[in-house]
Amino acid sequence: MEHSSLAGRVFRGVALALVLVFFMFPIVWIFLMSFQSNEQILRIPPRILFEPTLFNYQALISGQLRTTAGNLEISFMRNLMNSFVLSSAAVLLALLLGVPAAYAFARFKFRLGETIAFTLLSFRFAPPLLVLLPLSLYYQQLGLNDTYFGIVWVYQLIALPLILWIVRGYFEDISPDIEHAYRLAGHSWREAFTRIAVPLAGPGIAAAGLLSFIFCWNNFVFALILASADKQPVTVGALAFVTASGIQYGQIAAAIVLSVTPTLLLALYAQRYLVEGLSLGAVKG
């Protein structure tokens, strides 16, 4: 109903504000924490007003953390780099494998097709810990333990099913007639795939890529077990802030802000593609 009473509108506004505060509070709080020293953070009662400091960020970027217990080496920048390399490589590989597979599942009905597709998705259901032990044993024997390739490979467990299922849906939404028309116009099926299907499923592919990037970025347990210090991503690297002299809340907050920023920026950038969706103007609306 477009005509609502004033009271109704006020109530709606208040309700929305409450929900917003509830969801945003932790993020805002962490953002504020990242500009405070440990002492300021642990003060009771906490204060909204404080003197901001860039100390936490300095420490992270320089890799040197001076605490009362002495100097601590942190490799946060290295971790950030690792996260980036591992996640990007994993998503790229997953797209390369997953998009054609998704197309096959969407367009061709073959024996056991549904079963295979479901099996791939079911990898997402299994608790990672269940596969970790056998996996690390295999990796040790294969010499994949503590290699970038090994970790990227295991990240496929996260990225591939996601891409497969999301992109498959997008392919199914494209009228096969559009591809038929392109083929009748004299193009091979490969051209129909690369020039028609992939561009039209573009927004879906971008969405799936972004989502799986975030999932890979946030992964903790695979990297914890399979990678040593120099190949660990930020999620594992953050453990370093739990030190003998206490927990470095300020640095943790700053690390979180820095590690969330890339995915956040990526999401903001990709938003317009995601919203654009599949508006196939050529098919009757």
């Binding site: 007639d177 559009i178 038929h180 009748l184 116009a185 099926w189 039209l200 196939l280 103007g281 098919v283």
Partner: peptide, 29 residues
């Protein structure tokens, strides 16, 4: 394969290529 048939076809749902202009659609063949 369809691309070797030399058949022209018009579809009920038009099946135009949504990411190409009308001109590119017509010229595709």
């Amino acid at each position: 394969p369809p691309e070797r048939l030399g058949i022209g076809m018009a579809f009920q749902n038009f099946a135009l290529f949504p990411h190409m202009t009308a001109r590119a659609n017509i010229a595709s063949g």
